[in-house]
């Protein structure tokens, strides 16, 4: 039977999603999956269906060609991470999931920034690039493209700083991650 039980009109606030176990921090999940067609669709579909919001998603090969690694980040303030990982585990093509401990994890993303650089700002942008250990990979009279790697937070900080100079466009990969030390992720 359709809900609600009463004919009272619901306010939008009342419709807000119900609670769950929230950790309140960002989580990086490293997921090893079988390299088969449709696996990414299954994962994306699962997230959509259960109302989990993916912040970033990166997919790539691993050292074993039969296996791909999906690294995704999501907000533990919004989602019950435990439920997310359990549901992911139910997918037959998912081999392994690690909810990476922030302190024991190396996370990096790659970003490309196209900044307008026609006037006085040019030198300043180049200087910022240097401080952030970015690389200028394309230069025209009116713009430069900077390549930057780093944590999500570092890339964010750089974005904030160059924005006032005229950020024409930006592309980010989303983080990939690996555990520190000898043991496998």
């Amino acid at each position: 039977m359709g809900e609600p039980a009463t004919k009272e009109v619901l306010s939008l606030d009342e419709l807000e999603a119900a609670g769950g176990l929230r950790t309140g921090r960002k989580h990086i999940l490293s997921i090893l999956v079988e390299n088969k067609p449709g696996v990414l669709t299954r994962i994306a579909g699962l997230f959509a269906r259960r109302g989990f919001n993916i912040d970033t998603l990166a997919v790539g090969p691993t050292d074993d060609e039969r296996i791909s690694r999906i690294t995704l980040t999501l907000d533990g303030a919004l989602h019950p991470i435990d439920q997310v990982t359990k549901q992911l585990h139910k997918l037959v093509n998912v081999l392994k999931i690690r909810d990476l401990e922030p302190r024991e994890t190396l996370a990096r993303e790659l970003a490309l920034f196209k900044v307008s650089a026609d006037g006085a700002g040019r030198a300043e942008v180049m200087q910022l690039c240097e401080i952030f250990r970015g690389k200028v990979v394309d230069v025209t009279k009116r713009s430069i493209v900077i390549e930057l790697t780093g944590t999500f937070e570092k890339v964010d900080a750089f974005e904030q700083l160059v924005r006032p100079f005229g950020l024409i466009e930006m592309a980010r990969t989303g983080e990939i991650a690996i555990a520190r030390g000898r043991s496998e992720t």
Partner: peptide
């Protein structure tokens, strides 16, 4: 068929 039923299966496979 695989796409349509994906959210409501325990598992599915398309023979290739």
């Amino acid at each position: 068929t695989i796409g349509i039923t994906m959210p409501v299966v325990k598992h599915s496979l398309m023979i290739q």
